[in-house]
């Protein structure tokens, strides 16, 4: 579904990504792990269009997207979450879910002036979709609160719900369990698996190895901008280069 070929990204003299090859097959959960500063978030930013690779290609279902604008990439069915939550904090929970359905609507601002039939039907659909997501992520009772006032865990879940409201085929999750306790992490893992069972493809950046083991079909390991290992979670766990990258070499 998603294909990265020889993707490199230079920031001045810093090689943030170096010839990254990566494939995310449809309907699989792929993990991306690596030490801090390895370039994981840079990679996600390059896929989602906030940043563009210096060289290399990225294809989504055969379409090149390495030069596309973020909203075009979203319209191809790629949604993402952020490492540090980036909700629209002054808006209500419900409005956050309406916003992310932006590209599914067609009614222009002019149609809202005259309450055209299409505008009303569309608003209705947006609200129905939002209601389904609120229920699914257990946020119904918070719908009319401002997103910025929610407790941390609820904000995380709202961010997932908001990404899902885009109606994507591929979701990029940037450290979804950051700041969660083991119980919450496991619960989130169950949510992620459920998404996969419903047909979603997922690329997840994670530090928490328990989540990686719980959900991932395959794992890529990134270190200093390079892919140093690729395999099943079980293979990665016992890979010596990976252990070295995380813990350093064992000296005699």
């Amino acid at each position: 579904m998603l294909e990265l070929r020889q993707v490199s990204r230079l920031f001045g003299g810093l090689q943030a990504l170096s010839q990254v090859d990566m494939t995310v097959p449809a309907n699989k959960i792929v993990g991306l792990i690596g030490p801090n500063g390895a370039g994981k978030t840079t990679l996600i930013n390059n896929i989602s269009g906030l940043d563009h690779p210096t060289s290399g290609t990225i294809h989504m279902n055969g379409q090149p997207i390495q030069r596309a604008a973020p909203h075009q990439i979203t319209r191809l069915g790629i949604a993402r979450t952020y490492q540090n939550i980036r909700l629209f904090s002054e808006m209500t929970v419900l409005e956050n879910l309406l916003i992310s359905q932006h590209s599914q609507g067609k009614a222009s601002a002019l149609e809202s002036l005259i309450f055209s039939g299409r505008y009303r039907r569309e608003e209705q659909t947006l609200r129905e979709n939002a209601a389904v997501l609120l229920k699914r992520f257990n946020l119904e009772h918070l719908a009319h609160l401002r997103a910025g006032t929610l407790p941390y865990g609820d904000q995380r879940r709202l961010e997932m719900a908001r990404a899902l409201a885009i109606n994507p085929r591929l979701m990029l999750l940037d450290e979804p369990t950051a700041g969660m306790n083991p119980v919450e992490t496991h619960e989130l893992g169950t949510q992620i698996l459920r998404l996969r069972d419903e047909g979603m493809t997922i690329l997840v950046i994670e530090h928490d190895m328990s989540l990686i083991h719980q959900v991932c079909d395959e794992v890529y390991v990134l270190s200093f901008g390079q892919i140093i290992a690729h395999g099943t979670p079980e293979q990665i766990k016992n890979d010596t280069t990976v252990i070295e990258a995380y813990l350093g070499r064992e000296d005699e």
């Binding site: 980036r86 629209f88 002054e90 808006m91 309406l98 992310s100 601002a109």
Partner: peptide
């Protein structure tokens, strides 16, 4: 209360996130 108006508010609050929500 329209898509366009909500997009305006979203851009004010976080331009990059708004772009990732599919807003041009």
């Amino acid at each position: 209360r329209s898509r366009f108006g909500r997009a305006m508010a979203a851009i004010r609050q976080d331009e990059q996130a708004a772009a990732n929500m599919g807003i041009n």
